[in-house]
């Protein structure tokens, strides 16, 4: 069944001088999929996306895009990709409309096509009222939405989104989720990074978790949860009741309390003495992420 992947990486690596940002990763993004690349700060997500865009040369391994090695990618292929970069690079001196017009010209879109698409795009990102305002007058969230609209100007098959919703309010995030799902329904392929695990869980068909340039785990959100944190989490305050101290249940010490991972809540609940204080909830992707990448802050 496997259609030719839109993106395929094998042993992909990138070093900046002595810094090894990506250390040999394998993955394949299939057409129509929403593929999420998750990882702590400095994991190598942006670097991977830049390699895919041809904005950074690969150091080792292979990387193909639309079936072609990235080094051979030309204008025709680049016109099929839309990028939402992590950093804002809108034209601050131009209006919303002008930003879109100028960008459309970089894709050599005819004037009539650009004129026709702009109202639809600003409507899609709910910026219609701001269309003739300067970018400097937009809030951070509006800028982010404009960057998304801009990435869509050439109707790309592949949309690469580097933290598209960072800094957005809940309303704007919900809007973007809805629009991304609509794009997916329309058959676009999405490659996404995010630090919001609920977002990844909601949008993605396939998730790859990386840390320090290496893949730690991959699978569907459901598979990852089932595999790494069972289905249920009990957070039990210390000191632990004796029955739990014997290591019978999979657990993780997080300081003041211990997390227990079980498939069926009953398994553990029936063991707990009545006076134990605990918190029970279904396991989610955030548990997987923290379990795999550790709880320490990434300073470098």
């Amino acid at each position: 069944m496997a259609a030719t992947p839109i993106i395929e990486a094998k042993g992909l690596a990138k070093s900046y001088g002595a810094v090894q940002a990506v250390r040999g990763i394998d993955f394949a993004v299939r057409p129509g999929q929403c593929f999420a690349l998750l990882g702590p700060n400095g994991a190598g997500k942006t670097t991977t996306m830049r390699m895919i865009m041809g904005l950074t040369k690969i150091s080792a391994g292979s990387l193909t895009l639309f079936g072609k090695p990235v080094a051979q990618i030309g204008r025709a292929e680049r016109a099929r990709i839309g990028l939402v970069p992590q950093e804002d690079n809108l034209d601050p001196d131009l209006s919303v409309r002008q930003n879109l017009e100028v960008y459309g010209r970089y894709f050599k879109l005819p004037k009539s096509v650009i004129r026709e698409r702009i109202p639809a795009l600003v409507d899609f990102m709910q910026l219609t009222e701001k269309i003739d305002q300067g970018v400097m007058q937009l809030s951070g969230g509006m800028k982010r939405r404009l960057i998304l609209a801009r990435a869509m100007i050439a109707e790309p098959e592949l949309i690469i989104l580097d933290e598209p919703t960072t800094g957005l309010d809940p309303q704007a995030r919900v809007l973007i989720w809805k629009q991304l799902l609509e794009l997916k329904r329309a058959g676009r392929t999405l490659l996404l990074t995010t630090h919001y695990m609920d977002e990844a869980q909601r949008l993605s068909d396939w998730i790859v978790i990386i840390d320090q340039g290496r893949i730690l785990a991959e699978g569907t959100p459901g598979e990852l949860i089932a595999q790494h944190v069972k289905g249920h989490v009990f957070e039990v305050a210390k000191p632990l009741p004796g029955v739990l101290a014997n290591g019978r249940f999979e657990h993780e010490d997080i300081g003041d309390s211990v997390l227990f991972y079980v498939e069926q809540p009953g398994e553990l609940r029936r063991e707990l003495p009545a006076e134990t204080s605990y918190l029970h909830r279904p396991a989610n992707l955030e548990d997987v992420f923290l379990r795999l990448t550790g709880r320490k802050l990434r300073e470098n």
């Binding site: 865009m53 025709a76 680049r78 804002d88 690079n89 809108l90 970089y106 894709f107």
Partner: peptide, 14 residues
């Protein structure tokens, strides 16, 4: 600073 070139290079422009 404005990263204008980065924005351009993410399109078919070389």
């Amino acid at each position: 600073y404005q990263k204008t070139w980065d924005a351009m290079l993410a399109t078919p422009v070389s």
